[in-house]
Computed example of a mutant assay.
Amino acid sequence: MKLPEIGDLITTEQALDLCRHFKLDYLIERIQANPDQYEPWVFDGCSGVRDEMLGLFTGCDWKDITYKCCLPHDLCYGYGEPENEIEKERVDLKFYSDLVTKAGMKKWQASAFLAAVRVGGKEEFGFSFSWGFAHKA
């Protein structure tokens, strides 16, 4: 599967294909049940950080971080159920685990990433990468 480039617009149909690729079956069901409830969004890689710099800070391949960790996390965040803190917590812990197991990041570094996600991803902030960002307003 061809993964999106940073800056690419992700349509709902493309998101479904990506969810299939990452085996996010619960999101596939959610999106297919109400596809008109979502809007396209721009894949920004690891939100708030220039992805190519991640390798310098972590000693990991930035593409592993971006495509094995951040992209599936973005899908889970984009299509996350609004106000479902239990789902958000589960998604964030999976992100931490992926950073360690799929990108080879040290646990303390992954903890710092997790802390940033928990602060910046809050729904009430309404950032482009906040929880539930692909839902139509």
Rank of each mutant, 00 (worst) to 15 (best):
K106E: 15
K94F: 15
E13C: 06
L9S: 13
T11A: 05
V119W: 03
F125I: 08
L56D: 10
A15V: 02
F43C: 03
L27R: 10
D8Q: 12
L16F: 09
T101I: 12
L99V: 00
S130E: 14
N84E: 12
L24P: 01
K107F: 10
N84C: 02
E81V: 15
A116M: 13
M1V: 11
R30D: 07
Q32P: 02
W41Q: 05
K136M: 10
S111W: 11
K94M: 14
I86M: 13
A115F: 04
F127N: 07
C19R: 01
L3D: 05
P82S: 03
T58Y: 05
Y26N: 15
Q109L: 07
C46M: 10
A103W: 07
I6P: 02
A33R: 04
S47W: 07
R90E: 12
Y26H: 13
E123K: 14
L3K: 12
F129S: 13
F57H: 09
M105W: 00
A33S: 03
K23D: 15
C19T: 08
V91E: 10
C70M: 13
R118Y: 08
C76K: 13
T58N: 03
I10N: 03
I31N: 01
D64F: 01
M53N: 12
R30P: 08
F125P: 05
L54E: 08
A115E: 00
T12W: 02
R118K: 03
D98M: 08
E89M: 13
E85A: 13
G45D: 09
Q14S: 11
D25Q: 09
N34P: 07
W131I: 05
L114G: 05
A110M: 02
A110G: 01
F95Q: 12
E89V: 09
Y79A: 11
S111H: 05
K2H: 14
G7R: 03
L3A: 03
V119C: 07
A33T: 00
T58R: 01
